[in-house]
């Protein structure tokens, strides 16, 4: 009897913890969405629904530009970080090489360095040594250096128990390395790669401290938010954040429906 209670009590208790975590994580986001509809963003009570901020967004090019810049920086950073970290983690995990330890240390090392320092040092190096003005490219690169170490760790965490004999088996059957990767390794490690992609995208999309110093005159969402603090955050920023969250929410609904209908499984092999 005690065991049966135990069997459902554990998941319920743990599930409650997860639920509470979601509440904690999403409360500020919900507050932002709520406030984006308020007439007054500093004192949004009582609630007078209002879509003025959203209508303003259509005309405010600064915000649109900032959104696209942030997306661009996020995507490029994520692509570079994911590719480099996937390659690096495979090299380190699969091959016995005398430099393996050193390579791992170098690939993780950007994590030792505070974001702020990466931003500042890249700025110093670009300006004083290379003589480059601020631009999106150096912001992407500085973010990608940082993102790569996160991607690398995420890949390591998952691939540490990957069975590399699968790859060897494919090679024995005559597949070339590229085909082996595409048809054996990738299908098995893609959740890790997706994880690396998503995390590095998110880190770069909303990065303030690295991008801030390297962008020159290019606005992004976080730099806009930081810049408008002096006179208070504008309702349009809340509205834009709410729209981004709306898209994310829709994406989740779509993924859920696809999974529910069994169209995609995302590597899940159970029933």
């Amino acid at each position: 009897m005690a065991r049966r209670v135990d069997r459902w009590l554990t998941p319920v208790a743990l599930g409650t913890m997860l639920g509470l975590l979601y509440v904690f994580l999403f409360a500020p986001v919900i507050y932002l969405v709520y406030t984006s509809f308020a007439r007054d963003t500093t004192w949004p009570f009582p609630w007078n629904p209002n879509v003025k901020a959203y209508l303003n967004l259509i005309n405010l090019r600064a915000y649109q530009e900032a959104l696209w810049n942030s997306l661009g920086i996020g995507l490029w950073t994520a692509l570079i970080s994911m590719a480099l970290s996937a390659m690096g983690s495979i090299a380190v995990l699969k091959y016995r090489h005398r430099w393996r330890g050193w390579f791992s240390i170098v690939l993780i090392s950007p994590m030792f360095v505070a974001e702020l320092l990466i931003g500042i040092s890249t700025l110093i190096f670009n300006r004083k040594v290379l003589g480059l003005p601020g631009n999106v490219g150096s912001a992407v690169i500085a973010n990608a250096v940082h993102g790569m170490s996160f991607g690398f760790l995420i890949m390591l965490a998952q691939l540490v128990r990957y069975d590399w004999r699968l790859d060897d088996a494919a090679m024995v059957f005559g597949a070339n390395p590229w085909r082996t990767f595409w048809h054996v390794t990738a299908p098995n490690i893609w959740p890790a790669m997706l994880g690396a992609f998503v995390i590095t995208f998110l880190l770069a999309f909303n990065n303030l401290e690295i991008s801030f110093y390297n962008l020159g005159a290019v606005p992004t969402l976080p730099s806009l938010a930081w810049g408008s603090l002096r006179y208070g955050l504008e309702a349009e920023l809340f509205a834009l954040a709410a729209l981004v969250n709306g898209v994310v929410f829709l994406a989740f609904v779509v993924i859920y429906v696809l999974m529910r209908l069994g169209i995609v499984r995302f590597g899940y092999r159970g029933i």
Partner: peptide, 8 residues
């Protein structure tokens, strides 16, 4: 998902 909104 909350990371889609900036830290500020």
């Amino acid at each position: 998902a909350p990371f889609f909104t900036g830290a500020v």
